[in-house]
Amino acid sequence: MAQTATPTPNSIASMPEMRRPRTERHDAWWLENWPFVIVFSIFAVYATWRAVWPHEATLYWSDPYLSPFYSPLIDPQHHWLPRLISPAILILWGPLGFRMTCYYYRKAYYRGYFADPAACAVSEKGHKRYCGETSFPFILQNVHRYFFYVAVFFLVVLWYDAIRAFFFPNGVGLGVGTVIMLVNVVLLTGYTFGCHAWRHLTGGGLDCFSCTASAQARHKLWQGVTRLNEHHMFWAWVSMISVGLTDLYIRLLAAGMLKDIRLL
């Protein structure tokens, strides 16, 4: 046993040395956010391109498949919608708002894009005035439950689209696109109904689960939502990737770059 340094009054550092480094973590904490930043950025760029690029506005449909970026389809022939505005723009604010106010995504982008904080126990630089979610714009995160209501509406429409994907021009069938759309809507359902706001609305706001018959029923529902909610990050990831890939598949079919395979 050897002591390599002795803390004598002379060796004790004064104030400047007392300042601790940004972090004393030895692990690769800076890598934690990269998967989210890369995948989400790719998704955001792809979705924006699909929504605003004029040529893309013609590649949303390959019978019987409708891209989730364009569903519900609003005025695709531009009878009243200006040519410069794609029908997707009328749609995407809903799912986008739901995801941007989602508690999982908030954690991910506050860390990944705002470095607020970049990682746990890693000091922040340059954030002089911190307001969190107490003032504009982040106080708007409190409308998450309203975006949940909007997301449920879109989900109903996407379930309709997925069922409609069984009905080909020559009769009922099953194509690769049908399976993709079905998987996509199942993943979106898992994500939507695992939402923290929904968990609160089902029963989280109650203090007593046994006091009334309705509270007992809500407790059962709350337990189900809680099981989904425990894996909310998983659902958030897979549903984001699936919705992007579903759109890409239908876009490639619509552009004639791919041919759908009929399974049944």
Binding site: M1, T4, T6, P7, A13
Partner: peptide, 22 residues
């Protein structure tokens, strides 16, 4: 053995000191 780099100090002064332990 392991080297323990332990903070030593009080109030507003201090620094890390290395100790080797079995």
């Amino acid at each position: 053995e392991a080297t323990m780099r332990i903070f030593r100090g009080e109030g507003e002064t201090g620094k890390h000191v290395d100790y080797v332990v079995p």
